[in-house]
Amino acid sequence: MPPATTRPDTVGFVIPYFDDGSAWRRDCLRSTLASLERQTDPAWSAYLVDDASPAPDTAEFLAHLASSLSGSLTVLRAPRNAGAGQARNLGIAAAHRDGHALLAYLDADDLAHPDRVAAVRAAFAADPELDFAYNDVAFIDEHGAPWDPERLLPGLRMLDEEQRLPKLRGRERWREQAVERDNIAIPSAMNVRTDLALRVPFPEVPFCEDVATLFRYLGSGAKIDHVPGVPTGYRVPLEGGSSSRKQSGGVDAFNRMRCRNERAGLEEAIATAVRRGAADERTGREVLCRYLIRIGRTVSADGSPELGRSQLRQAHALDPETFAVHATAAERADLPAPSTAR
């Protein structure tokens, strides 16, 4: 359905929110919304989607926030608790109905840089073909203080290090994203044209829906660029570790869901690229093999060595030639011995 009115250069912030009633979580949301009120460019609206939170007074709390915010805040409620992917899709649809042609994702505990709206609007205005733009992240703790990069968990330290690599720009960059980067951006650092977000919705899976969607964005042929100078404040608590890992049942359970959900997104991206004629099946198989090698190394370093070995075994079974080129000698030696049974 086309929007009732069109605001081609305004930004709709999409914010999924889950409320367990804790004071800390609500304080984080207040800080997130305050970061929007500090925008130097006022051409924005926010769409806050309650992911069917269990706290009994969530609706009252969010209604009070909406009435006290100086900017435009629309509060929505998901019909069931299904994770951030479903919540973002609902926010995307609402922003589209209100005519926003540009979106900025922002999680409910992260902080938008004061110049984010201005920089994002300028980037998309400068390139009418641009579909997706990402900014960097700056790690902050639960008190808003900067992190020492050396103290970050391995996965976050990898993200921090990869920010220093050459930025991905242009089209058909799904190959590099799959085989060379663990992740170029968290959701709170993603900005996208609304029509792309409508064509490529987030999967309704509990974790790692962001990387799966990024694969699918890029596999669709979307043009990507980087927006410098407006890092998102990415909140990582000093105490308590990763909430995603806790909610999933621990590191190994989280990494299993990560491997499954990311692979599903990459396989869909490859299939889309093949249909578009941007890749052939042989190229797609090679990319998937190299992704499995990379993710196997990543989850092994993150505390799931047996899961990592299983990813390497799948890579070898999928494409032995590519595996032989890109696996290390130790990884090749770790494969099960070929069967001699007749």
Rank of each mutant, 00 (worst) to 15 (best):
A189P: 02
A185R: 04
N183I: 14
L153D: 08
V179W: 05
S188G: 09
E204P: 00
E161P: 00
E176I: 01
V200R: 06
Q163P: 00
R173P: 00
M190N: 14
N183C: 15
D195N: 08
M158C: 10
A189W: 05
P201A: 10
P201S: 08
R173V: 08
P149C: 04
L168D: 07
R157S: 00
L159A: 12
D182S: 13
E180S: 13
D160F: 14
I186S: 10
E204L: 04
R151M: 06
T194A: 10
D182G: 11
V179T: 15
R181A: 04
D195Y: 03
P201Q: 06
E162A: 01
D195E: 14
R199P: 01
E180D: 15
R175T: 09
E180M: 07
V192E: 10
Q177P: 04
D148F: 04
P166Y: 12
A185I: 08
S188W: 08
R157V: 01
R175G: 10
P206T: 06
W174Y: 15
P154E: 11
R169G: 00
L165W: 14
L165Y: 13
L168Q: 07
A189C: 12
R199E: 15
A178W: 07
L168E: 02
E204A: 10
M158G: 00
R164M: 02
R157A: 12
E204K: 09
G170V: 04
T194Y: 04
L159T: 03
M158A: 09
T194F: 02
V192P: 00
R175F: 01
E162F: 05
R151S: 11
V205P: 02
G155A: 14
L168V: 05
L165S: 07
L165Q: 14
Q163D: 03
V205T: 11
E150C: 02
E150T: 13
F207C: 00
E161Q: 13
N191T: 08
L156P: 00
N191S: 11
W147V: 02
R193G: 03
I184G: 01
P203M: 03
R169I: 09
E204W: 13
L168F: 03
P146F: 04
M158V: 11
R169C: 00
L168S: 06
R157P: 01
M190Q: 15
R169V: 12
L152C: 05
L153Y: 08
P166H: 10
E176D: 15
M190I: 13
M158W: 09
N191L: 05
A178T: 06
A178M: 08
V179F: 03
M190H: 11
L152S: 02
V200K: 02
N191R: 01
P203N: 10
R193V: 05
P146L: 02
L156V: 05
R171Q: 09
R181N: 04
L153W: 10
P206H: 05
Q177N: 11
I184N: 06
P187Y: 04
R193T: 09
R181V: 07
L159R: 11
R199K: 13
G170Y: 03
E180F: 07
